[in-house]
Amino acid sequence: MSLVQKGTALLAALLAIIATVLIVSGPELVPVNEHYDAVYKSPLFFPYIALGLIIIGAIPLAIKACNGLRVVLDLDVETTSPRLRLVTVILIVFSAYTLLIPWIGYFLASVAFVCIAMFIVGFRGLPLLLKAIGFSTLLYALFVLGLDVWFPDSWLLQQFRV
């Protein structure tokens, strides 16, 4: 069983379990105050259809994956091998970027993110810093000054103002 087949089986089984739990606990999670004279008038009618579809697709998919499912990958995915450590680090840096914006402001957070992300994927030296500053300036000019996307005053800016 390949890694992709194991992953498919795991994901499908997980989704089937979640869908089942959501169906079973539906009446507790969705407050149905009145008595509906027909099933289709209930607010749970359509969610149950959707969750049912997940189960119908996921259970046989998990079984097929365990029995050696033939995986069809997109062309660009097929030609690159997964680098989970790199992806995890990039996601952590991206999350930090999102969290940093209220503290140091959009521009500085963008410079920091682009610098760190470029360093992680292998860029080095002065061009790294120049590209990061140049690109972040472009982003700031386009979105904040050009398209008027508003960001709250950062904590850092407030310190200087005082």
Partner: peptide, 12 residues
Amino acid sequence: LSAIMMLGIGLF
């Protein structure tokens, strides 16, 4: 099968 599963997720 994956398409049915994903369609269900989208509808949900």
